[in-house]
């Protein structure tokens, strides 16, 4: 079954994305504002009453809340109304907690070796909650992670690479993805390292790369290139802009 992603060219050209697939948004340079594509997907899904798990990796949650507020996502309301849950990795590791309903912190000391188990624990608890409240019925389930590349700043490239390889295996074996519905995931990765990024390019079902250039006249041009998608032979690129702070594809 395919789902609308909420990014126009992907929905138009590919007819959406496969349910339970992994969509990698590779923000090749931060000026391209690729993270806002992921936030746009999240906004669309929440506004149409679907379920979203947001995985905050390396930003203080206060920063995320301030950015999303300005981007027009009513995080507080979606948390309160139970369609959004947040796992705050940064706050868990550095003990910077924002006490809000449906915001989860990982317990105890955290290292990359046990991080995946801790995620699974929290996901299981929250999915059980959604199940009890009968929230899965008729709703799409999405996971949005910003950003996988933050692990590199927190733990180093080699360790991150090993973590992602192992997490893949552990998640396949965990009952939490069989007992409860599994989501469609959007991961953001910033930068161009050659240790972790190639692995993600292979792992993902879809790769959308965002880049920016500056013209002679000093104008910034932002493009999203569909680098990988099932059955796609070429790599079409699409310009996007922001109008009144909202993402626009012409």
């Amino acid at each position: 079954m395919s789902l609308k992603l909420g990014l126009k060219p992907v929905d138009r050209v590919l007819g959406g994305v496969e349910e339970r697939s992994l969509i990698l948004i590779h923000e090749a340079d931060p000026r391209s504002l690729g993270k806002f594509l992921a936030l746009h997907v999240m906004k669309e899904k929440l506004d149409s009453d679907n379920l979203v798990g947001y995985f905050n990796i390396g930003m203080p949650l206060s920063v995320f809340l301030s950015v999303t507020r300005r981007f027009g996502i009513d995080v507080e309301r979606h948390l309160k109304e139970g369609r959004l849950m947040i796992v705050d990795t940064f706050g868990s590791i550095y003990d910077l907690r924002v006490e809000m309903e449906n915001v989860w912190y990982l317990s105890g000391p955290i290292s990359l070796e046990i991080l995946n188990e801790k995620y699974i624990e929290v996901i299981r608890t929250h999915k059980e909650k959604w199940k009890q409240l009968n929230r899965f019925e008729g709703r799409e389930l999405w996971g949005v992670t910003v950003s996988i590349s933050d692990y590199l700043h927190m733990f180093g490239a080699q360790k991150t690479q090993r973590y992602l390889e192992l997490a893949d295996l552990l998640r396949t074996n965990s009952d939490v993805y069989r007992k409860y519905p599994a989501g469609t995931n959007v991961w953001v990765y910033t930068g161009n390292d050659l240790v972790v990024l190639p692995l993600l390019y292979r792992k993902a079902t879809y790769v959308l790369r965002t880049e920016s250039t500056v013209t002679e006249e000093g104008k910034v041009i932002r493009t999203m290139k569909i680098v990988k998608a099932p059955g796609l032979k070429s790599m079409p690129a699409y310009e996007y802009t922001f109008r009144s702070g909202r993402l626009k594809f012409p």
Partner: peptide, 8 residues
């Protein structure tokens, strides 16, 4: 490069 053309 951000904020001049209505970027978020």
């Amino acid at each position: 490069t951000k904020g001049g053309g209505d970027e978020p």
